[in-house]
Design a binder for these strands. Structure first.
Lengths: 215, 215, 215, 215
DNA sequence: CATGAATGAGAATTCATTCAT
DNA sequence: AATGAATGAATTCTCATTCAT
C-alpha cells in the first residue's frame, strides 16, 4: 500500500501542522485557485473569500502572495516529493520482484498514483516552471537522489541479468518518465480519471519492447 | 528540404505582412517578453519600450493586450503548425524510405528542428496551455489531421511488413511524441542547443527497441 | 413644515447610512464635482482629492465611476423624490385650503423649496437627462403617482366649485410645472437665491389669471 | 412665410459656405453625434468615420474638437437665432394682427417650428448649457434684442388697448417661453412629431386666460 | 489637400499590502 | 488574533492631436 493519501502528505508538509485552522484554509483555497486560474490571475480577495477569512488574515501567516506560493511549492518539492520517493523506495525494497516487468509496473503505478493525488500542486508547479525553468532544476536535484539510492542496485542488477539494456541509468529514467508523462499530463491539466492499471501495463509493455515486433 | 526557418514562417503567419514595420516590432517584442517573463508579468509599457514605439501604437493594431497574445498564438496554432505539417508530409512523401528506422529518423529530426526554430512561441504556448488546457485541444485538433494524411499509409505499410507493431496509430504517435518531448522540452524552456542528430538517433533507437535487450 | 432639508433626505437616501464616513465624503465630493463640471469632465483623481481620500477608496464602495453616478441619481429619483412627494401630499391634506389660490401657493412654494434644497442633484440630473432622455421617463413615472393621490380630489373639487378650469389634470399640471420651471431653472443652473415668497405669488397670479386683464 | 428651413440656415451659418464638401460632412457628422451621445462621449474617430473622412481631415479646418463644437454653437447662437428673430419680426410687421390671440398664435407657432427645425443644435446647446450656464447668458443676450425691436410696440399697444395685462414685458415673455417649452422640450430631447397647430392654440388659450374659468 | 500611423498624456481600474480597531 | 477599510503604485486602455508621406 504505497503512498499515504494526499490529505495526509499535504498536511504533514505544512510544517508539522503548526498552522491554525484558518491558515490551513488559506493554503487550501490558494492551492485550488492557483491551480484553476494560475498564480497571477488569482487575487488575494478571492483567496480570502474562498477560505472564509478576512484579507488581513491571509497576510498574517504569509507575508506576501508570493509567500503563499512558496508555502505550497517549497514543501511540495523538498518534502512531499522526497518523502514520496523514500516511501516508494521502501515499498520497492519490501517487494520481491524477480522480473523487471513487475518492478517497473510497481514503479510506474506508484508514480501515476502520486501524480493524480497531487494533481493541484503539480499543475501549479507546471505553470510556474514554464515561466521559471529554474524550478525544473530544483525538481531535478531531488529526482537525482533516486539515482543515489538502493533502486540503482535493482536496476544495475537487471542490467547484469540481461533483463535491462545497458544504457546509462539517467537515459533510462528519461524515457520512462517521458512515456509516463504522456498518460499523466492530460489528466493533470484537464482532470478526469485515469485507469492506472491499464495505463501502467501499456507503459511497461512499450518501454520494454519498443515499437518493433519481437521475433 | 524540411521547414523554412522561423523568420519566414513567423512573418508569413502575420497575415501577408499587412502589418507595418512598427506593428511587427510590437509583435516581436511581445513574443520575446511573453516568452521570457510570461504574459501576465509583461506590461504594455515594456512592450512599447522594447519595440521602440509609443504605448499608443501598441494598441493601434491590437485592441487589447490579450489581442497581442492571440495575434501570436492563433496563427501559430492555425497556420504555422499546419503549414509545418504539410511541408513535413511532403518531405516524407518524396523520401523513399525503405526501413522504418530511416522514416522515423526523418520524422523525429523534422519535429525537433521545428520545435527549436519556434522555441519562443512554443514556450508561450506551454505557459498558456498550463492555465487553459483548452488550448491543448485546439492543438490536438490540428495534430489529428496528421492521421488523416498519406503518412498513415506509410505506417500501415510498416505494420503490414512486420516492421512496426500492430497497435492503434494514436498510441504509437503518443509514445513517439512523449519520447521526443523529453529531449525538446528542456531546450524549449531553458534554451541551449540540441544535437539534433544524436538526439534523433537515440530516440529512434529507444522507440523501436525498448529497454529490453534484443536477442 | 414642509420637507426635511437636503442633508437629511440625502443621508437617508444613502441606504440607512451604511456608508462609512469616507464613503460619504466620496459621495459628497462627487455630488459637488459632477454638478460643477459634469460627470464626464470630472475625474476620479479630483474626487479622491476633494474627499481627502485615496483613489483606491473611491472604488472600494462604488465599483465604477458610473456606479457613483447611480449612487447619486438612483436614490434621488426613486427615494428622495417619492418621499418628497409623500410629505408634500401629507402637508396638503393637513392644510385646510378653502381657495385654490392658497392651495396652489403652498404647492408651488413646496416645489420651489425642494428644488433649491436639492439643487446639486437636480443639476446632475439635468445634465444626464439631456444625454439620455430615458431618465426623464423614469422621473415621469414617479411624477405620475401624484395623479394617483388625494391631491386629485382637491383639484377635482376645485373644478366642481368653478374655481379651476375644466381641463384634463395632466394638462393643468403641465402648465404649472412649466411656469414654476421658469423661476427655478436659472437658479438651479446658475445658483443664487430665489425669493420663494415673491416667486410663488407671481406664479399663482399668472397661472390662475393668464395674461389677459380680468374685466 | 416664416423661417427658411434648417438646411438653408445651417449652411448659411457655416461661414458663407467657405467650407469644402468634406468639411461640411465633418460638421454634419459632429452635429449628429454630439446630439446623440453628447460632446464628451463623441470621439474624433467616430466623427471621421461618419463623415467618411480621415481623422486628419477633421483637424484641417477645426483646430480642436472644442473648435468643432464652437463651429456648431457659435453661429447657432449669434447668426441662426438672430437671423431667425429678424425674419420673425419682419413676418410680424407684415401681418396685420388685430387681436392679441392672432399675434401670439403666429409668434408661438414660429418659435415651435424653429425649435423643431433646429432640434439637433438645440439639444447640443442644452447639453452644454447644463454644464456651462454662461451659454444661457449668451442666448439671453440675443433674446433681449427682441425687446429692443418693433415687437415691443405691438405688445405695448395691446397693453394700452387692454388686451394684455400691464406687467413688465420680460415677465410676460418669461411665462410664454415657459409654456412653450413644456411642449417643445420633450420633442427636442426625445424626438417625435409635434402637432404645432394644436399645441400653439392650447398654449395661447392658457397663456391668455389662465386656469380660472372666466365668469 | 488628404491620409492614417504614430504619439503620449491622462483616465479608469485593480490589487497587493498595511494598519487601526 | 482577526478584521476589512484604506492606500497608492502600477496597469491597461483611450483619445485628441500631430505630422511624414
Amino acid at each position: 500500500m504505497a503512498n499515504k493519501d494526499f490529505q495526509t502528505l499535504f498536511s504533514e508538509s505544512l510544517g508539522q501542522s503548526d498552522l491554525s485552522v484558518k491558515q490551513q484554509a488559506v493554503l487550501r483555497a490558494s492551492l485550488e485557485l492557483f491551480s484553476e486560474k494560475g498564480f497571477d490571475r488569482t487575487n488575494t480577495r478571492d483567496i480570502a473569500d474562498r477560505a472564509n477569512v478576512s484579507e488581513g488574515t491571509v497576510y498574517k501567516q504569509f507575508k506576501t502572495k508570493e509567500g503563499i506560493l512558496s508555502a505550497i511549492l517549497d514543501p511540495f518539492i523538498h518534502q512531499v516529493i522526497p518523502k514520496a520517493i523514500a516511501e516508494f523506495l521502501e515499498d520497492m525494497s519490501k517487494t520481491a520482484t524477480p522480473t523487471i516487468e513487475d518492478f517497473l509496473l510497481v514503479a510506474v503505478q506508484n508514480r501515476m498514483k502520486f501524480a493524480l493525488a497531487n494533481r493541484l500542486q503539480l499543475r501549479i508547479f507546471l505553470q510556474e516552471a514554464t515561466r521559471d525553468p529554474s524550478l525544473l532544476n530544483d525538481l531535478g536535484a531531488e529526482a537525482v537522489k533516486i539515482l543515489d539510492s538502493p533502486i540503482v542496485d535493482f536496476l544495475r542488477n537487471y542490467q547484469r541479468e540481461g533483463q535491462l539494456i545497458d544504457w546509462p541509468l539517467p537515459r533510462i529514467v528519461q524515457y520512462m518518465l517521458g512515456t509516463v508523462l504522456t498518460y499523466i499530463l492530460p489528466k493533470v491539466l484537464n482532470g478526469g480519471d485515469l485507469d492506472v492499471n491499464k495505463a501502467s501495463h501499456e507503459t511497461v509493455e512499450f518501454v520494454l519492447n519498443g515499437l518493433k515486433p519481437r521475433k
